Amino acid sequence: MMLHAYGMGGTIRTVVNQANAMVALGHEVEIVSVVRRREAPQFAIDPRISLVTLVDQRDGRRPDSFGRKAWRRLRGKIVPRGEFAADYFTERVEWAAMEYVSGLRDGVLVTTRPALNLISARRTPRSVIRVAQEHMNLSAYPETIRREIARHYGRFDCVAVLTRTNQAEYRRLLPGTPVVQIPNAVHKADQEHSRQVNPVVVAAGRLVPQKGFDLLIPAFAQVVAERPEWRLRIFGTGPRRTQLAGLIEQHGLGEHVSLRGRTERLDQELADASVYALSSRFEGLPMVMIEAMTHALPVAAFDCPTGPRDVLTDGVDGLLVPPRDVDGLAAALKRLVADRDLRLRMGLAAAETSRAYAPEVVMPRWDDLFSRLAEGDRPGARFEPSL
């Protein structure tokens, strides 16, 4: 169950990949999209998968009832303030999600963000195996969310997180609750490798404060001052496009930095580049970074919570610098762009690291977890699916 199966983004892509892998293994799979705002999914969904929409918003969102403010104070209101997607959860949307999970009687329900996890914890019948999938580190959530997680996630049969760091966080908060670490999988591990011939740095993600492109642009200005032939291409859409365009102009980088918007050929863009930059203020598990590593791209990244350090080994397959350290990020980028041999060496190591996130490595862990839960295996907090 996911918020918007028809949208773009790393979480949507990885959940669709997971569903495709599960149906390929012989499972009966249904993707539940709480809302729908596009005609067709942006990622390929196996035709054997049933795709269900709860609230169709292609003609726009319907206004809530007159009693919305009162409803927020009632017991029916579950999604707390501070949920990153709280604006999606109108009265109609939240009730539709609650009604759907309440009507389930068996099978495994996997929910994929705090709002849906909390709805599942409080409304899904106990006859259903309930798995909460968390794509973000616990410390990134505001106190309103962490408090509800601590209060309700103990009802789940299992909580699945992406990194060992996340696992430790959730185990401290949820003693006695099974918390397993299974990373997201890339869609394909064997990708075309960068030939390290184009002076191009790539970054990708939603144009929102979390992704830190406002920090990357001034860092790249320092690169251009020494290496004017290099270019930065930022892929993604979002509400901060105008502000970022202004920042590019402010630094005089109109010929050096471009906001490329959404692309359907990101794999080729990565293969054509020479460096990947991760400037996020926080992450769950940075999947586009790992996708870049499948193309043998070395990475310059902020050591933000969480994800980069769980994947990268500093000095081996990338360079880690302190969070939000613009000068440090600039220095890492300058080191990489100045040394092609270093990029080739780190790129090969990055491609090797990325193999741990191949579908054929990750997906059997989900299959094993679901099988063991279906057999009634609900062990304590030290449970790990077999590899």
Rank of each mutant, 00 (worst) to 15 (best):
L118E: 02
F89N: 09
G107H: 10
W95G: 02
G107W: 07
L104F: 02
T112G: 09
V93Q: 08
T124W: 10
T111G: 02
D106E: 13
D106I: 00
A97F: 06
E83L: 01
V128I: 15
E83Q: 10
L118M: 06
I119W: 09
V108A: 06
Y100F: 15
G103P: 08
I129F: 12
A115V: 04
G107T: 03
A96C: 15
R130Y: 12
L109S: 05
R81Y: 00
E99D: 14
L109G: 02
V110R: 00
E91V: 10
A96E: 14
P114Q: 03
M98I: 15
Y88R: 03
A85T: 06
D87R: 03
V131G: 07
Y88F: 09
S127W: 15
I119Y: 04
F89D: 06
A86R: 09
L104P: 01
V128G: 09
F84N: 00
Q133M: 07
L118A: 06
V108R: 00
W95S: 12
V93G: 04
S120Y: 00
V128M: 04
F89V: 02
A86L: 01
G107M: 05
S127V: 14
R113V: 06
V131S: 07
S127M: 12
T90W: 12
R122F: 10
E91T: 13
T112S: 14
E91G: 03
Y100H: 12
M98T: 14
W95N: 08
E94R: 03
L116V: 03
P114K: 01
A86V: 03
V93S: 06
T111M: 02
V93I: 13
A86T: 00
E94K: 11
G82I: 01
V131K: 01
V131T: 09
G82M: 01
R81F: 01
A86F: 02
T111S: 10
E83T: 05
R113D: 12
Q133S: 13
V131H: 06
R123I: 09
A96R: 11
R105F: 01
A132D: 02
T111E: 01
A121S: 10
R92E: 15
T124F: 07
Q133G: 07
R126E: 15
Q133A: 13
R92Y: 10
E94Y: 07
P114S: 02
P114C: 07
T112R: 10
S120K: 01
I119C: 03
A132I: 00
E99Y: 14
R126H: 15
R113E: 13
T124S: 14
T112E: 14
G103S: 15
E94H: 07
A121E: 04
V110T: 07
P125T: 13
P125K: 08
T111L: 01
P125H: 05
A97L: 14
I129Y: 11
R81E: 09
V108L: 04
F84W: 00
Q133C: 06
R105Q: 12
V108E: 04
T90I: 12
L116C: 00
